[in-house]
Amino acid sequence: MTDNTDIDEQLLEAILNRLLPAIGEVPAAGQMKLVPEIIRLSGRQARFQNQFSNALRVFKSTNLEFRSTTVDEQDDAIKAFEAEHPELFGSLLTISYIVYYKDSRVHKRIGWSGRTPQPDGNEMEPWDESVLENVRKREPFWRQV
């Protein structure tokens, strides 16, 4: 198993800036100091951690000057990586989205409570049998044998 100790944090931040740009009062993801959480979370499963670390390593190996290129060139580089290595790119995108949407600034912007699903759950209106009025009129149509 690899670990995340060799992750180029500045490169990751530059990629995050292109994946999730600024909107409203929320800065681009690379400016939100999400990298420590990305590193922590990706380390919770060896398989994922390997894939994610490998994604960054492969990306870096083919994009040595990424941080110094224009944003259009950066987008092109990410698109090329996505096309060439969809599975590796998938791990990078997945963890980026998960950590971005854990952030309270993002929650505030999109109106998301940020609660974990449990223990509080959600409220629903109770079952109302009147909804069956139409379908109950139908004759049985299961196939007799």
């Binding site: 292109r18 999730l20 909107i23 989205y97 949407y101 998301w112």
Partner: peptide, 26 residues
């Protein structure tokens, strides 16, 4: 489900990254 699940596709394709991401997620 919630925003990260939606962003990562859920039952369909992931929400595209970059320009347009936020509108599509919304």
């Amino acid at each position: 489900l919630g925003p990260a699940w939606i962003a990562n596709g859920g039952f369909r394709d992931p929400v595209p990254w970059g320009k347009g991401h936020h509108d599509e997620l919304e």
